[in-house]
Nucleic acid binder design. Sequence first.
DNA 1: ACAACATATGAATATATGTTCATATGTTAC
DNA 2: GTAACATATGAACATATATTCATATGTTGT
Lengths: 126, 126
Amino acid sequence: MAKKKLTTEHSSEQCEVTCIHEDRVSRVKQNSLKAEEVLGLEDIFKALGDSTRIKLLHALSQEEMCVCDLAEVIGMSQSLVSHQLRVLRNLRLVKHRREGKMVYYSLDDEHILQLFTQGLEHIRHR
Amino acid sequence: MAKKKLTTEHSSEQCEVTCIHEDRVSRVKQNSLKAEEVLGLEDIFKALGDSTRIKLLHALSQEEMCVCDLAEVIGMSQSLVSHQLRVLRNLRLVKHRREGKMVYYSLDDEHILQLFTQGLEHIRHR
DNA sequence: ACAACATATGAATATATGTTCATATGTTAC
DNA sequence: GTAACATATGAACATATATTCATATGTTGT
């Protein structure tokens, strides 16, 4: 049986840490990412962190395609594909052009492919 | 060209698409990522798609640090840091070693840094 | 005008996930 | 043994997000 510990006064105002290596902490703190950079990275990686969007981007890395084709390739509904393409569009990861009734999508930034490659290297390398 | 047309009724059995470019679709389909690869990428990018974990990884990219230091550096609670470190540990993104009462974490895979670099290039390049 | 098609989108829902709180576990010193 | 400290973790909660459904918008052809 576990015992309860008598907690002395728990000042909840501050995080009362006692083990900080001050020099190390301040050194690393100074080299922090800017808030803007953190948010930017978060957005991109969040966009890449979904299997549907991964499949869409990978398909588009091969050729430009219309929404219907994309739906068929990844085996999901047109509605879902449209929704997810909008997410990718908002992040400037894909661009689109209209041709008659159809809308063709393609990659807007080839950096994405390098991220994929790096990611694949990682999952093989473990 | 386009295949059979289904009634535009509420037949929700199949995805009734009529605009498929068959050659293009089958070409791209053949070159699909394996399900395993998709899941692997999803896991990694999902892990990177959170600001707390981004800050943790970026801090660890500079030097090995204990949990307390990390909490101080990113300005969040010890509990949260521990939880998120476990996520990163499960994905083999960080490793840890015990030294007395403290546990020191460090990056387990330097590929991560390249992903960060690529990501940063992207957000600047738009 | 209309019908048919391709795509976009708002709303609803279910699930996933980040954060907090309380407490447990493990280590050192006494 | 107990106390103090550093870390880990289960549960609860709130928010975010993926997917589906129904419908709207835009385009072509008649």
